[in-house]
Simulated assay, not measured.
Amino acid sequence: MATSSPCVVIGDDEKGYDLDLFCIPKHYVDDLEKVYIPHGLIMDRTERLARDIMKSMGEHHIVALCVLKGGYKFFADLLDYIKALNRNSDKSIPMTVDFIRLKSYCNDESTGEIKVIGGDDLSTLTGKNVLIVEDIIDTGKTMKTLLSLLKQYNPKMVKVVSLLVKRTPRSVGYRPDFVGFEVPDKFVVGYALDYNEYFRDLNHICVISETGKQKYKA
């Protein structure tokens, strides 16, 4: 399925930026290889995604559904930009928010089976226009399963926005409606993406180092 929103494609040979060019928390300096997507670039891209979403879904009341925990930062920033558009343009849309927490893995392996372990009853989404906000699509299995789960509650429309989509041979071919960045098959952290709950407090999206993987291993 082709994405209706073009995205920034980061090539396999992208080297990233040296850590000492940016403000990195001291406790993470040895745990990261490179800054991959600087915070400012994330924010600019998110602003554009907000505009594209308004253009596509702007005739409707939207329920923005945040997939926790990794999606919370992108969700908050995206909604801030949509609220700014509501204030400053001719077209504005009423928006309500909801949260869902999923479990889709055993240790570090995705099972492809998802359990909803937090959030409201999905029946509140019946007849609504739903925008699912996700931090990263890896294989796409979790999102496909979530979409089929939502379908049972008959929402009027469902669109998905993901900050990142990973280029991986493990992909089932799922592509969201709106994509921020397409990234190579590397383990990235920061901007609320975690490694065993660490690195959520990092502004930039970075590639974790082997030292970091060992230090924060569960």
Rank of each mutant, 00 (worst) to 15 (best):
M1F: 06
M1L: 06
A2T: 10
T3A: 02
S4V: 11
C7F: 13
V8T: 05
V9E: 13
E14M: 05
G16P: 02
G16L: 06
Y17P: 13
L19M: 04
F22W: 08
H27A: 13
H27C: 11
V29T: 11
D31Y: 01
Y36A: 01
I37D: 00
H39E: 07
L41S: 10
M43H: 14
D44E: 13
R48N: 12
L49F: 09
L49P: 08
A50Q: 14
R51T: 12
M54R: 12
K55W: 15
E59P: 01
H60Y: 11
H61R: 09
V63R: 02
A64R: 05
L65Y: 03
V67I: 13
L68P: 01
K69L: 03
Y72P: 04
K73A: 09
F74H: 11
D80M: 00
D80E: 01
N88I: 04
N88S: 14
S89N: 10
D90G: 14
K91E: 01
S92I: 05
I93W: 03
I93K: 05
P94M: 06
T96I: 01
T96K: 01
V97Y: 02
V97C: 12
F99Q: 00
K103M: 06
K103N: 12
S104T: 13
Y105P: 02
C106F: 14
D108R: 00
D108G: 00
E109C: 09
E109M: 06
E109A: 05
S110P: 12
S110C: 10
T111S: 14
G112Y: 07
E113W: 07
K115Q: 14
G118Y: 00
G118A: 00
D121R: 03
L122D: 09
S123L: 04
S123T: 13
T124V: 15
K128I: 07
V133P: 02
E134Q: 11
D135R: 04
D135Q: 08
D138T: 04
T139Y: 12
T139S: 04
K141T: 04
T142I: 01
T142S: 06
M143Y: 06
M143T: 04
L146P: 14
S148P: 10
L150T: 08
K151Q: 15
K151Y: 10
Y153Q: 07
P155T: 05
K159H: 09
L164F: 15
K166W: 06
K166A: 13
R167S: 12
T168D: 14
S171K: 06
V172W: 04
V172T: 12
Y174H: 08
R175N: 10
P176S: 02
F178W: 13
F178C: 11
V179S: 05
V179Q: 11
G180P: 13
F181W: 07
F181D: 08
V183P: 15
V183D: 02
V183Q: 02
V183R: 00
D185M: 09
F187A: 07
F187N: 10
V188P: 06
Y191W: 08
D194C: 07
E197T: 07
E197Q: 15
E197N: 14
F199V: 03
R200I: 00
N203I: 02
H204T: 09
H204G: 01
C206K: 00
C206E: 07
T211Y: 13
G212D: 02
K213P: 03
Q214I: 05
K217N: 14
